[in-house]
Amino acid sequence: MAEIIVVTSGKGGVGKTTTSASIACGLARRGKRVVVIDFDIGLRNLDLIMGCERRVVYDFVNVIQGDCTLKQALIKDKRIETLYVLAASQTRDKDALTSEGVQRVLDELANDGFEYIICDSPAGIEKGAHLAMYFADRAVVVVNPEISSVRDSDRILGLLASKTSRAEKGNGGVKEHLLLTRYNPRRVASGEMLSVDDVKEILGLDVVGVVPESPDVLSASNAGLPVILNDDSDASHAYEDAVARLLGETVPLRFVAEPKKGFFARIFGS
């Protein structure tokens, strides 16, 4: 039985693809059979973040339109044995994704023995975003501690609660999780940034992860290496914790408190 997890946010640029890649890697590193799908038709990017852009021959839309088999389109990750990527198409045809097509591919992936299907949603609330969330069992809502991101996420929560298969069938709906990215504990402490608790309170969601703002995220995407695989990075540890929580483990939140300043730094500034 495959579990379908959509990574979504409404607003663009908050870290959906970074999060999809890292969660997929994290689950696969624990031995799970994982496929991560790019739903951003026309603006393919997951392949770059995963570092497999030169190995894309067939894509998601090719499979839906029957130009190739699913097996031909799945790109096997070179680092983790149980991880596969399904790239988005670069077509400009907005209607390339169909509900029946997406369902057929998801069913086939589940039948092939994949345990987790991660759907990397495009920004916005158009068709791609709709189809990315429609068949989901769970949703990871990626939020920056910033006013427009929080508002857009709430809009997405409304759609998850009404425009998904689980919501329509009334079988408990989609389980939603909050994942904060670009979190800066220092700015939170000085009252310049919304805190985890603020965002949690406004959206009314449980927190599955808090990823601190880190230069490692950019270096990771530069290199095509999902940041979770950089074991020296705080962002990696934060994503690792998020994966553990998704799997039902109880892990205390890290990287939410301001690092302690020494006595001299406090007196003379930093």
């Binding site: 929080v150 709430d154 939170v188 009252g191 310049e192 919304l194 805190s195 603020d198 406004i202």
Partner: peptide, 20 residues
Amino acid sequence: APSSARLAKERLRIIVAQER
């Protein structure tokens, strides 16, 4: 410290409630 975060939270609370 000036708390612009508190202002953000207040504004969000109102608009989110309205939109819900």
